[in-house]
Design a protein around this nucleic acid. Structure first.
Lengths: 267, 267
DNA sequence: CGCAATATTGACCATCATCAATTGGCGTGG
DNA sequence: CCACGCCAATTGATGATGGTCAATATTGCG
């Protein structure tokens, strides 16, 4: 009945995310599989949902990289988030009727569209799934906050390093790594739009990161040469990603200086 | 039974927010009133919840201004959000066990703490309330996104103007205005921490806004002298606040240039 | 009245933006 | 196979926004 059954692996990703914390019942899993979907593909650069739209479906990323962004009056844009397979970038449209930003494909993308009505019915029946999805949107929020810290209080160099750390971590979560390479379809200009930097400056900071022996970037992918250097440069502390019960990863559990004497506080 | 009954007006604020879009049933309202709470007060500058905590309660702001913030390694901080009475700044702790940021009082604050267990039980029983609360957290996210745009792509001047627009709008929503004055207990240094600016620069931009005849700030409050100028300076478009069905306000429905030919898109 | 926290100023500096080429990679048509 | 064209990456030069430092003035308050 469901098209999803034809494409097993994609489901694994969504399920893996939803079950990060508590497994779903068999019935709930089945209900997920039975959701009617409509699959579409997009070319890199194509818009998927536009600011101002009033969507009637949510969009589950199956393949590729999706970006959320806003434009400002002078035509510049701010990329707000990157989304990998298994993510539902516009899940919020279930509650907020009008899109306050756009969704665009940053690479060749395929996505499954799920009607709001069906999703809502499912959530009413399966509160465990509702909780998981709420949780997903809350993690989105946590990532926004971390980006805010970056743009408000971190240097361009640190921000860039941080971005690579975050992407590597997210991709590892959903198993999208190819050997020791992470897919990275972004243009330097797109990276700039995400970090609030100019293309030129992104380029220069990238060179510094290379010189520091932290990463290697080329042809649509990047490789982490020295995680410790990279994480230190970005002051990366993955707590904000709220990863599940720590799955053994291939790298040392890394944290930044644990905020030291976290005494200061507000005022 | 509930302390809340002793303090009617606070409830009005929470209810007003939850009912922004659909009224709650009488039973649901009653269930809200019956939530057991513990009321506490904080002095300005006091921390309410700390990064790293694993809260067992959520915190409903009753009076005063609450801020969420993170610290970075060099001791500087980024304020992530401001919360007015009726807000539940750590609602996310219901789903995300560990706090990835702190909550602090920016003025004299009183807050009601609601145990997670009771809240969860309520949400299970009253899906309409669950929806409303989910919605609240999604609006938080929308505000984060708007701040990201500000910090990434707007000038200090615009960011400051935008902040005043946002605060005025939020305060008007919950009815906290005193005559034509909005309460504003923030220090210029705190404003800087919210906007990603230095105290000195905030001071200078503030002078420009005054010189432009947009606002007047003094002694814990500010007054909007020319909304149009202010909104234009901040490129303020309130869509991201997802206010309910437009309640008649005392000011013209303002928007920025409506994105004009919204053609550009990603890439 | 006097302290202490904020606000305000001025001088100087750093990060990052802008502008303008130039280079390099790569697919396509000849 | 090679030239052309296009887009992204890179480089250099210059400038602006905003940060830092160090006083000095205000203001709220006990």
């Amino acid at each position: 009945m469901s098209d999803l059954l034809k494409d097993e692996p994609l489901h694994a990703r969504l399920l893996a995310k939803l079950e990060t914390h508590w497994p779903l019942s068999h019935a709930d899993r089945q209900a997920l599989y039975d959701l009617p979907i409509r699959t579409r593909t997009f070319k890199a650069g194509e818009d998927m949902v536009l600011e101002g739209d009033r969507p009637t479906e949510c969009c589950l990323v199956l393949e590729g990289l999706v970006g959320r962004y806003k434009l400002v009056s002078d035509g510049r844009r701010q990329i707000l988030a990157f989304h990998v397979p298994g993510d539902i970038p516009d899940l919020h449209s279930l509650q907020l009727t009008v899109m306050d930003h756009s969704l665009g494909a940053l690479s060749q993308v395929s996505a499954a569209f799920i009607p709001h009505a069906d999703l809502r019915a499912l959530l009413r029946r399966a509160p465990a799934i509702a909780d998981s999805l709420w949780r997903e949107t809350l993690i989105d929020g946590a990532v926004f906050r971390e980006w805010m810290v970056g743009m408000g209080r971190r240097s361009a160099y640190a921000r860039l390093a941080h971005l690579f750390c975050e992407l590597a971590t997210k991709i590892d979560q959903t198993g999208g790594r190819r050997g020791d390479r992470y897919p990275f379809p972004l243009t330097q200009s797109e990276v700039g739009d995400a970090l609030g930097l100019s293309t030129v400056h992104v380029n220069r900071m990238l060179q510094l990161l290379r010189k520091a022996g932290a990463i290697q970037v080329r042809a649509g992918e990047f490789k982490v040469l020295d995680w410790d250097v990279l994480a230190a440069a970005g002051e990366f502390n993955p707590v904000y990603l709220h990863l599940g019960p720590t799955r053994a990863t291939n790298r040392a559990q890394n944290t930044t200086a644990p905020l030291g004497a976290r005494s200061t506080g507000l005022r």
